[in-house]
């Protein structure tokens, strides 16, 4: 009904978070880029991409099924209280599960890349050992 609203809300939060973290990384001249590692703000960008992309395509699906409309109240289910309750239940269950699964997959990606970049010798470290 409107399950995509949960991941879309998370996308808003992570986008703001990414902007703040990126600013901090620039201000403190973090060594993430110099070290050959991927900055955390870039990693957060993967999560943003999946959340925005997924929510966008799901919104299209809801438009296809007539669950969202281009006019007020935008959500068909918001027109009567019984449907609204069902919609809120769906957002709380399916929507939250969607957001959680995407975040879990992203966490796995971050863990794998962190492990890989830790194994890969940076030019500086390679110079030290040579």
């Amino acid at each position: 009904m409107a399950c995509f609203l949960a991941p879309a809300t998370e996308a808003v939060v992570t986008t703001v978070l990414q902007k703040v973290i990126k600013k901090k990384e620039e201000n403190h001249a973090e060594e993430c880029h110099n070290d050959g590692k991927i900055c955390f703000s870039d990693k957060l960008g993967w999560l943003n991409g999946m959340l925005w992309g997924g929510s966008g395509l799901l919104a299209f699906e809801h438009l296809w099924h007539g669950e969202i409309t281009p006019f007020f109240p935008f959500l068909t289910a918001a027109s009567n209280p019984a449907d609204t309750a069902e919609m809120l239940h769906e957002i709380a269950t399916s929507g939250t599960a969607m957001a959680a699964l995407v975040t879990l997959v992203w966490a796995g990606m971050v863990a794998v890349t962190s492990k890989l970049s830790a194994k890969t010798p940076t030019p500086q470290k390679a110079g030290e050992t040579a």
Partner: peptide, 19 residues
């Protein structure tokens, strides 16, 4: 950009399918 959209939507629809 395509990867983000397709994988994001796939994961979300997977949850829908499980439900």
């Amino acid at each position: 950009v395509l990867l983000y959209m397709f994988w994001g939507a796939s994961l979300m629809w997977l949850v829908d399918a499980v439900v």
